[in-house]
Amino acid sequence: MISLRNVTTAFAARGKDPVIAVEDVSLEIPQGSIQGIIGFSGAGKSTLLRNINLLERPTVGEVEVAGIELTSLDDEELRQARHQIGMIFQGFNLVNNLTVLQNVELSLKFAGERNRSVRQVRAAEALEIVDITEKATSYPAQLSGGQKQRVAIARALATRPEVLLCDEPTSALDPFTTATVLQYLADVNRDLGITVVIVTHEMEVIKALADDVAVMEGGRLVEKFPSADLHREDFTPETSIGRYLMSEGISVDRGLSAAGGAR
């Protein structure tokens, strides 16, 4: 279980008021579930996600993951605890000059696995989970976006974490590739029992994957509901932002005249 209690995260800004990226958020995420976090750009989604593994230490509040109160740990203890929490990113964040296998090995190395052959075996197992074994000796530059994200998932899973944090993992991918990557996340959740937290600005992603949705706006968690509600005919989110995100669809005023030509 992941438990955020009254988490507030402020960023000091020189000569200005601090930016409050996350404000008094409390959220319980049950073990083995998939939690979606949705909101507009700047709503504080990434900051909240980074609060879970303390990449960003909350200014106020407590964070507990898998029974460990992370906010009370010192740096060394926190490093150890992070081996239990995998993370993937929009930009994949692989090491370009390492092969796919070496990239995955890295998380095991960081977790203290000194035996190289043990690392290689376990890295290969992780690559198998996302069906990318045949790319083991390729370099990231030789992979497509979807393949890179699968390698990043393998890297995050190699240490057998309890939680997988995903910051817009499909925002750089086309819809088809997005579906593939989301499928792997669903499989990982189901087969390995890993709790998944996914940040996105696309309700489609939430609908496809999440058990629960948290809607953020201006640093606050403004609304929560089970994502199954999104499939109900009579469901309307309480907040206008929730309704907007649900109705998604882009409309642009190009300033065209009735005749269809430019003004």
């Binding site: 990449l55 150890q80 990113f89 964040n93």
Partner: peptide, 10 residues
């Protein structure tokens, strides 16, 4: 990016 990922990996 890669530094961020490494920090997350402990």
């Amino acid at each position: 990016g890669a530094v961020e990922a490494s920090r997350a990996m402990g």
